[in-house]
Simulated scan of single mutants.
Amino acid sequence: MLDDVDLRLLRHYQHDATLGPADLADLAGLTVATCARRLDKLQAAGVIRANRAVINWRALGYEVEVSLRITLDKTQPRAFDDFLDAARNVPDVVEIQTFLGRVDLRLSVIARDMAHYQHIYRSAILTLPHIADIEALMHVARIKSDEVLPL
């Protein structure tokens, strides 16, 4: 169970994971040693999953994002496993989500332009196994994309 100190530490840490131990400890009202111990404990418990760089893929020339809603042929016993194994290997697929309901999966695909997307779609997406239906949604704007929790 997380206590108020853990929550306070996480609140500051999630806003800027690049803070040094002394700065983070100061913001959270902890000693540096206590801050380090608590961070280690939160990482070991799986509360803090990773520290990573978030790269703006548009700055690297990727201008198109498409969300593909995919329904699989569920008469095939390995439909999900086979599809996921293959989809993980498509480098332009940046996110895979599974759902319960009419739509089984959602893939987020990025491309440099529409010609590049068309190539990815024809050569990599349509060759994925056990697809029964695909609906493509062209991304227009990202209104909110926040991994910060209301702690």
Rank of each mutant, 00 (worst) to 15 (best):
M1Y: 12
D4C: 02
V5R: 03
L7W: 00
R8P: 00
R8E: 09
L10D: 02
L10C: 03
H12Y: 13
H12I: 02
Q14V: 03
D16C: 00
A17Y: 08
L19M: 13
L24E: 00
G29A: 01
L30S: 03
A33N: 13
T34C: 05
C35D: 04
K41H: 12
A44Q: 14
A45C: 09
I48C: 08
R49L: 15
N51R: 15
A53M: 13
N56P: 04
W57A: 12
W57K: 11
A59L: 12
L60P: 10
L60S: 12
G61M: 02
Y62E: 03
T71G: 03
A79I: 05
D82T: 03
D85K: 11
D85C: 07
N89D: 15
V90R: 02
P91M: 07
D92S: 13
V94Y: 06
V94C: 07
I96C: 06
Q97Y: 12
F99G: 02
G101A: 07
G101H: 05
V103A: 07
D104L: 00
L107T: 01
V109L: 05
A111L: 08
R112W: 01
D113K: 03
M114Q: 14
M114V: 11
H119G: 05
I120T: 08
Y121N: 12
S123G: 03
S123N: 12
A124D: 14
I125L: 04
L126I: 07
T127C: 04
L128Y: 01
L128R: 01
L128N: 02
P129Y: 04
P129L: 02
I131E: 00
I134P: 04
I134R: 04
E135L: 09
E135W: 06
V140S: 11
S145D: 15
S145W: 13
D146G: 15
V148R: 14
L149M: 12
P150V: 14
L151F: 15
L151R: 02
